[in-house]
Amino acid sequence: MKQKLFTAAAFLAVFAFLALVLAAPLPLMERSDEVLYTQVMPRQLAADGQSAEARSIDFARQLYDRDQLLGIKNYAGSILRLTDEETLGDAPYRLYDFLGQMDFWGEEEQAELERQIANAPPPWRSASDNVGFSAWNLSTTWDGEHWFSLQWELSAEGQLVRMRMRTPLEYTGQDLEHLMDEYLAVTGLDALEDWQAREVTVQLAVDEQSTAVLRARYSTGAKLYLYANYVDGTLVFGVCPLEKEELDQLDVSLTEK
């Protein structure tokens, strides 16, 4: 009898101890929470990936951050969101302001651009606002007959990100190099010292009478890809953030599209 009582008591004691042990995390959790709620935790501030030199250039940083933080990778692609009609109002002038700073941009080009913008009937205009960047896409004609889309994208500070324009003028590789130099100078990206020329090895569908002059440069520190092309009467140039791996992929990525 005594032994049975003792056994029962031992069981009770062990169960009580076990309950205590199993519930032990509760007070420990509370203790650690108290520390969490009172301490000031550190937070990493800068984005990794770009060099300090690149981070010091607002435009380079803005381009890269948009790509990294917002995941907006529309480059020469889609229009994201239509904005109010009113933002279009001064858009051409901001573009003119930027282009006007480039020695490359002559009167002929400017006249052609103005003519094309004037030719674009208002319903065909579209624009997008990509947090700090705005893009325009105007359907217009360059010879009064053939339609094409005139595109450009500007940062909120008025830096041109990319542009696509049909032009009756002809450009050589030298012209395009000049264009790129000018572009870098105006945007301040020329402060980056690691711009390297890239041979564009992608294949374009070229017709019998077509011309294609492609020029590109890449900055490893800023992870920016600069391009200027003259393909079949269309002048395109711009800059976009690309990781090194993406750049390598680009060389072979044009497959069956």
Binding site: D65, R66, L69, L70, G132, S155
Partner: peptide, 26 residues
């Protein structure tokens, strides 16, 4: 989980800061 939330939120905050800077500016 806390670290993940912290990383995620730091990124979100950076994103929001970027958006404020660039979205408000216009």
């Amino acid at each position: 989980n806390f670290d993940q939330a912290r990383t995620r939120n730091i990124l979100a905050h950076r994103r929001d800061t970027y958006s404020l800077q660039n979205g408000l500016l216009v």
